[in-house]
Design a binder for these strands. Structure first.
Lengths: 150, 150
DNA sequence: TTGTCTGCAAAAGCTTTGCATGAAT
DNA sequence: ATTCATGCAAAGCTTTTGCAGACAA
């Protein structure tokens, strides 16, 4: 049980409990940055951690409140959580394979602020997800289907 | 029963039924452009229309498929529907009073495409909602709370 | 008539909550 | 010893689906 994780929980004012440690360790160890509550739950159950789904939801909420995780609605059906690495970002998701990439673009932020201003609003935040075909899924020039006959 | 609505349904290839007519007439008559299924259902029930919530959902889906309505997730808990007035747009919602405004900004679209390109994606769509304080809800210069003492 | 639609009730999918037990400090 | 957290089951919300009866064309 990583002491880094323990310290992180303590400085967030959270008691050290198995569910909290395991959930946070999971995020620190997994390749897949974006996980739903169900994803986390299944992973932990596979690792023989005794935990309830309701607890996973509760812990995820606490970690978000503590600023350790962030959550976002990537697909309009469920929340996904990821480690908060400081820099705010938005997501782009491949409509074919589900791959998710992150980005942050000051010029886009500027446009959002300008649009809000123009409508008399003081911008406080936004929710943005781009959809498209990632480089692996989009038709390529040398693709048989799209290549023109000689 | 408006013949305009009837024609609209017919050219969409939909049979003329009471639920379809009533739902569409509701959108053509209401001030509030953005309504959830529940909103539509309650309004119709108040007007003594005999209709089931499941039917409202089915009809809304059909009208969206027909391009007569569009739907969007403004608050991450439920879909809202609105008349499709041709021009694509995004929304900005007041975090205080819930007011919704619409906008469309070519420069912002340009940034989205540029960002997608930069990540190797072919952009196909997006989901965007801005959040902020509308002109009525934001602190104004002459506001007692914010005005500096002389 | 015939194929489609409706209403109702039940179910599905994600998330939250009530409650008694159990663990952390 | 207290206080807080957990697990389970039940409930909440939005949306979908199964089905028998009802309706449009």
């Amino acid at each position: 049980m990583s002491s880094q994780v323990v310290e992180e929980l303590q400085s967030a004012g959270l008691r050290i409990t198995t569910p909290r440690v395991k959930v946070l360790e999971f995020f620190r160890s997994t390749e897949s940055r974006h996980c739903s509550a169900e994803d986390v739950f299944r992973h932990l159950v596979e690792e023989k951690v005794e935990i309830g789904l309701a607890t996973v939801y509760r812990v995820l909420g606490q970690l978000v409140d503590a600023g350790i995780l962030t959550s976002s609605m990537l697909d309009s059906t469920k929340l996904v959580y990821e480690l908060n690495q400081g820099k705010r970002h938005d997501h782009i998701i491949c409509v074919n394979c589900g791959r998710v990439d992150e980005f942050s673009d000051p010029l886009m932020d500027g446009r959002q602020k300008a649009v809000a201003d123009g409508l008399g609003y003081v911008l406080t935040g936004h929710q943005l997800v781009l959809h498209g075909y990632c480089s692996a899924c989009r038709p390529k020039p040398q693709d048989p289907v799209t290549r023109k006959k000689a």
